[in-house]
């Protein structure tokens, strides 16, 4: 019996894992190999010629006298990307949670409608959406003019091409990835549970923290992962709304496969990022695991 159940579970999980294993893990192994090869003169790599330059150059550079020097350029780019992603995640959560809660409290038919409403804007292209934001945010743009019309003379909004514009754009891009998982968790929330909490004398705060949030927790966790990590790879929004003044990780890695034609370094940067993310997830998991028990 135990065997049977185990094998049934195996067959449930196997397709997804084998698929990812074949189409992702194997190519990644190949890419790990690329990262320790010597770069080719014209791009690509010299197969079979090993070099660890790529990893060394993440932290060190050669100065004029050909000495190795500690170089923080790339670490700064990583730090900036992690910071912006964390900020985006928080914004998306602040906006996304109430919305998911609101949707889950609607009658069944309207719920489905609202969920579609969340995803419809994303049928348009990311470049076009960012363009629309540029028009909204620029000086003399719609928001600027709107504020002036309301009698608030901003004298130029001066927000486009700043990090603020980037976070507005990134939050926009990743909102559905926060709302939908939270909604999926909250959808089963029974109104009567909340009513019961109120009847038992709970105030709003307690009803929220004791009834609603615990139910939404798996969804919030999933949403945070789906916003935070893809956001680290954001490429277009920082370029367009940030005015291309500051690099994010994806821009850096992209340029290694682009103008720099340095595949090993690009691949190495990818693996360094992977290591960072896995590490932060492990820390998060260790911290998070001890939390629910304490609360309950």
């Amino acid at each position: 019996m135990g065997n049977l159940i185990r094998s049934k579970r195996f067959w449930l999980i196997a397709p997804a894992v084998l698929y990812i294993g074949f189409f992702m893990a194997v190519p990644l192994g190949q890419m790990a190999y690329v990262s320790i090869l010597e770069r080719g003169d014209y791009g690509a790599v010299n197969w079979g010629v090993f070099s660890f330059d790529a990893y060394a150059s993440f932290l060190f550079e050669r100065d004029l006298m050909d000495n190795l020097m500690f170089n923080t350029d790339y670490l700064q780019i990583f730090a900036r990307s992690f910071g912006l992603s964390a900020m985006t995640m928080v914004f998306a959560l602040v906006l996304g949670f109430p919305t998911a809660f609101y949707i889950s409290m609607q009658p069944q038919a309207r719920r489905n409608f609202l969920i579609f409403l969340v995803t419809i804007p994303f049928w348009t292209n990311i470049l076009v959406r960012n363009y629309a934001w540029m028009l909204l945010l620029r000086n003399g743009g719609l928001i600027d003019n709107g504020l002036a019309w309301l009698g608030y003379e901003s004298g130029g909004l001066d927000i486009l091409y700043t990090p603020y514009a980037v976070s507005i754009g990134l939050t926009y891009t990743y909102l559905p990835f926060m709302v939908l998982p939270i909604y999926a968790s909250l959808e089963k929330l029974d109104h009567r549970l909340i009513e019961a909490a109120f009847d038992l004398g709970a105030d709003k705060w307690r009803a929220m923290t004791r009834v609603i949030l615990p139910l939404a927790a798996p969804g919030i966790a999933a949403g945070c992962i789906l916003v935070f990590i893809p956001c680290l790879g954001a490429y277009v929004t920082p370029e367009l709304l940030g005015g291309g003044k500051f690099m994010m990780i994806a821009n850096l890695i992209g340029s290694q496969f682009g103008a720099a034609r340095n595949w090993p370094f690009g691949a190495a940067l990818g693996f360094v990022l992977l290591a960072f993310v896995l590490l932060s997830m492990m820390i998060y998991a260790m911290k998070f695991k001890s939390l629910p028990e304490e609360k309950l």
Partner: peptide, 18 residues
């Protein structure tokens, strides 16, 4: 440009965008 020249260029660009 040669590989060392491209490296320099890319490092200049990265520093500019930091």
């Amino acid at each position: 440009c040669s590989a060392p020249a491209r490296d320099l260029r890319n490092r200049v660009w990265t520093k500019l965008k930091n």
